[in-house]
């Protein structure tokens, strides 16, 4: 028996040694090489984040053409009270702008402030602005009036020629689109807009930074990719009850107050669609999802925007 034991031991050791030292380890799978495709990653934020103006557009304004490009964009910044400039600087830029427009465009007509008022009232948002400028500087008031006089006649003529001197590349697509839609030339509003230019820009040079306020980005809404990121962060924890897969229409809308560090400050359920115990369960699941996944990572410079966000949980999106 001892001999058999020894033989068995030797055999096992030999086989083990052979297996350990000479048995080839599993080869890694060779993945076939694929021709590289050039892929350019473009964030959708570049396409959807339109709130900041282009420096070129301020120059287009200055040659008194009918391009009222900025007229559409500033309303958002104007709502923000903190963005107003100091009066002194505003006067400087204002006079600059008025000078250029006055010189290039027209002779001195009689001042009447009425057309200005009309245009202002036409748009509800810029309302607070006229008051500010009126309060700050009374002098510009008569001066803007030259433009209304100019309005009927010069605009059709100057559209083409006044544009020529400016370098063609300056004209952005937006500008062209806006020019078609906007027929009325409102110089007063232009001057007000120019008032809003950031002091850093100064003058009428190309270095003029932006039509929007310096803090314009804060007012910008979250871009699609940022919304998607927020949704993705929440959906990691969104674990709806199984019964919801049955195609019932339950949508839970939650208003979330966030702290600057991304943690949740408050949750309010503002809107909901659906009734019954299943809905309660789903609402609880949504609440849990919001609480569980904090803190959320969002661009801190846009805190003003995502301080309060509404998120709707739709179980159907998940399945």
């Amino acid at each position: 028996m001892r001999a058999a034991l020894i033989v068995s031991a030797v055999l096992h050791l030999a086989i083990l040694a052979a297996a350990i030292f000479s048995l080839p380890a599993a080869e890694t799978y060779a993945t076939p090489s694929v021709n590289a495709l050039p892929v350019e990653i473009v964030t959708i934020a570049d396409e959807t984040d339109l709130t900041v103006g282009n420096p070129e557009e301020t120059e287009v304004v200055e040659d008194a053409g009918p391009e009222t490009v900025e007229a559409e964009e500033p309303p958002a910044p104007e709502e923000q009270p903190g963005a107003t400039d100091t009066p002194a600087e505003r006067i400087a830029t204002d006079e600059n702008a008025i000078d250029t427009t006055a010189v290039s465009a027209a002779p001195e007509p009689a001042g009447e402030p009425e057309p200005v008022q009309e245009t202002v009232e036409a748009e509800p948002e810029p309302e607070p602005q006229p008051e500010q400028t009126v309060a700050a500087l009374p002098e510009p008031e008569p001066e803007p009036t030259p433009e209304p006089a100019e309005e009927p006649a010069p605009t059709p003529e100057t559209v083409v020629p006044s544009r020529k001197p400016t370098p063609p590349p300056r004209r952005t697509q937006q500008a062209r689109v806006q020019r078609e839609t906007q027929e009325t030339f409102d110089a007063d509003r232009l001057s007000q807009l120019i008032n809003r230019t950031a002091p850093s820009g100064g003058g009428s040079g190309a270095s003029q930074a932006s039509v929007g306020t310096e803090s314009g980005r804060q007012e910008a809404s979250l871009t699609l990719s940022e919304k998607d990121a927020l949704r993705a962060q929440m959906q990691r924890c969104w674990n709806p009850p199984i019964g919801l897969a049955g195609g019932q229409d339950i949508i839970i809308q939650v208003q979330i107050g966030l702290m600057p560090d991304g943690s949740v400050e408050s949750i309010d359920q503002i809107g909901a669609q659906g009734v019954g115990s299943l809905y309660d369960v789903a609402a609880d699941a949504a609440r849990r999802a919001v609480l569980q996944c904090q803190p959320y990572r969002l661009p801190p410079e846009k805190y003003e925007v995502w301080k309060d966000v509404q998120v709707s949980f739709d179980p159907r999106e998940l399945f």
Partner: peptide, 17 residues
Amino acid sequence: LLLASFWCWAIIFYKTV
């Protein structure tokens, strides 16, 4: 299992012989 294999082979050798 290794010990069982070892013991089995010992028995196999012994019994065969």
